[in-house]
Design a protein around this nucleic acid. Structure first.
Lengths: 352, 352
DNA sequence: CTTGACACTCTCGCCACCGGATTGCTAAGT
DNA sequence: ACTTAGCAATCCGGTGGCGAGAGTGTCAAG
């Protein structure tokens, strides 16, 4: 039917039309037809010509018509092409950056979770979408100080100060009583040996020490190593990310179906699937985008997720981003997520 | 029109009819008409007679008709009368109690927040409604141990062990450097003087000491009192209650309107209004119920909240309960909330 | 006081219909 | 060869009518 489709890439003109179509659709959510395009696209073409181009674009899978006599809307593939090569990113306004920075720094003294919450809320507020921030993997964060406190009944309270004045507690059930003095010595030993190294490394070293117990070790060292190893065991799982502004998603028509919403919110509650998705962008660096069906999870078919990893000491420790309908303002959202990741990274690093 | 309304209290027969009407409506959510009632109420009355009674009940404000030719549904006042004098409570099944107990005890070693989360989730799961548990006011919980750790840059980490092996951290910005030894002495002083007393009392005493500084105090005591007072200052607010199973609310037809849901979920997020409501039942003891409009918050017009306070050392420290549509199975929910409050209380007390 | 009967009212689902919007196609124009 | 105007066809969304079903209020008889 259509003229030769020499390549799978649309012509320059077609790309321009596709871009304006998507931009328009993102703006007001209505399928856009040939007449509207012929007016709003800068090109001086009649609706009929536009229709021909649109037919091509449809054949390429970039756009689709909900029904015969409605305009076209972008497909996931269309959005993908758009964000990859068509979108014209808009740097966030200074005021927005300032707001982000302010709300993150406001929590600087709190633990990593507090920072994550703040970032998530700020993201949501600026983008009017749902914000999500994973709670940093504590494993790759440097140990600053360790301390033990005896509790009643053979229990010991382990206190870890990590990274930027963040504190973690853990209650250990020991196999015998330890005196306050023993515990202090153990802590001293561990502090001298390990301060500044990251938790994963410390634990690895301790486990190795435990296995390869050598004659040269005295009782104190053995105790220290054993207690330390227990203190560093990964604790109860707890929530792995902070989600904010879920309710914002109810404002979008494409999600205003109660059934869809329920599925979505239940997935948010489960955490599992969302987390897997976020994990995927732990590997890559820079902003990553999952559009609709691309995520592989049915519940997210009508959603897009824009993420970026954040770092401590140039090491990726978490991911943040936003979740919204596929029809979201990518040109605005992508830079915002990007800059937020930078801000969070530098906030986490700012501890001496 | 109707015969004399001698009293505002319905007759015995009318109450029976009202009860079956409400029970029926709670079961299947449809307005119930005279014919249905004439069959399902044990009484052997014709629909016409029932209609007369229903007219009376309507005049009293217990029931209302959505429109001319639908049956009647209970009003808030009707539900109120029902739960106050008509309802036949069903004790929870043993298996349900066991499940509640198990999930609460499972978190016994965690902090109070973990217990609250568990209770909330369990409540939600058993009732198929949203569960809510306030995080206990830490003020009225006994201090078991206090400890200070010097951090870098005039910062001091305060560690409070309270109640049943629960730990709280706080980072204090001090006005001068303190040596490790100074801090240890301060901690010793505070521990000797205050262990076992509840935080509010301790803080009150410290504040008093600070104001009425006497000659008899030495430097050590002054420092200790000053640091202690700062450590006990109420920290960042943080969330005040844990809500679970909000998505369960989406299953109810009366709430399946996106707009209503949005209002509801936003209120959940704000915390403020819900918290005020929960606070109201901090005063009273025993199960308390807010039905629809009674709450005073428009957003909750179509919801009921069933709450009960829970205690530590016979002192009310929090509230728990469920949130659901006004049309909920009160006869089942009320006893469940009641027993959960008892279970949580005893879990919090069980620490030696 | 209860009951059967009856007219009335209101909702809901169904169907038909119409206006509006957009498309694909064809034939003519540049 | 590409563009364009014109045209028939398609489909959605809203509107109005219609009938079935359900329940009510009332009245007069038991």
């Amino acid at each position: 039917m259509a003229q030769d489709i020499a390549s799978v890439l649309p012509s320059e003109r077609a790309r321009h039309i596709l871009r304006t179509l998507i931009e328009q659709y993102i703006r007001d959510g209505q399928p856009v037809g040939s007449r509207t395009l012929s007016r709003s696209a800068g090109l001086d073409l009649s609706p009929a010509t536009i229709r021909n181009v649109m037919a091509d674009l449809e054949e390429l899978g970039f756009i689709a018509a909900p029904h015969t006599s409605a305009g076209r809307i972008p497909t996931a593939k269309g959005y993908r092409f758009f964000v990859d090569t068509l979108v014209r990113l808009q740097p966030p306004a200074d005021s927005e950056v300032a707001m982000l920075q302010a709300s993150i720094e406001d929590r600087l003294r709190g633990d990593a979770k507090a920072i994550a919450s703040a970032a998530s809320a700020a993201l949501s507020s600026i983008t009017s979408l749902a914000g999500v921030v994973t709670i940093p993997r504590t494993s790759y964060v440097p140990l600053r100080h360790i301390e033990f406190l005896p509790l009643s009944g053979r229990r010991v309270l382990a206190i870890l100060v990590v990274n930027n004045a963040e504190v973690q507690n853990r209650i250990l059930d020991m196999d015998r009583d330890y005196t306050e003095d023993e515990l202090r010595r153990a802590a001293n030993y561990l502090n001298e040996r390990f301060t500044g190294r990251d938790l994963a490394a410390v634990r690895a070293q301790l486990v190795e020490d435990l296995n390869g117990t050598r004659e040269s070790m005295n009782r104190l060292m053995l105790d220290s190593i054993s207690i330390g190893e227990r203190a560093l065991k990964p604790g109860a799982p707890g929530p792995e990310y902070v989600l904010s502004g879920e309710t914002k998603l109810m404002n979008f028509e494409e999600l205003s179906d109660v059934e869809k919403l329920r599925g979505l919110f239940e997935a948010f509650g489960q955490q599992r699937e969302i987390l897997r998705l976020l994990d995927r962008s732990l590997a890559a660096q820079g902003v990553q985008i999952f559009i609709g069906e691309e995520s592989g999870y049915r519940i997210l078919d009508e959603c897009s997720i824009v993420t970026a990893p954040y770092t401590v000491d140039d090491r990726i420790v978490g991911v943040l981003g936003v979740i919204g309908p596929t029809r979201m303002a990518y040109e605005r959202v992508i830079p915002i997520v990007d800059v937020t990741a930078r801000l969070v990274s530098s906030a986490l690093n700012s501890g001496s």
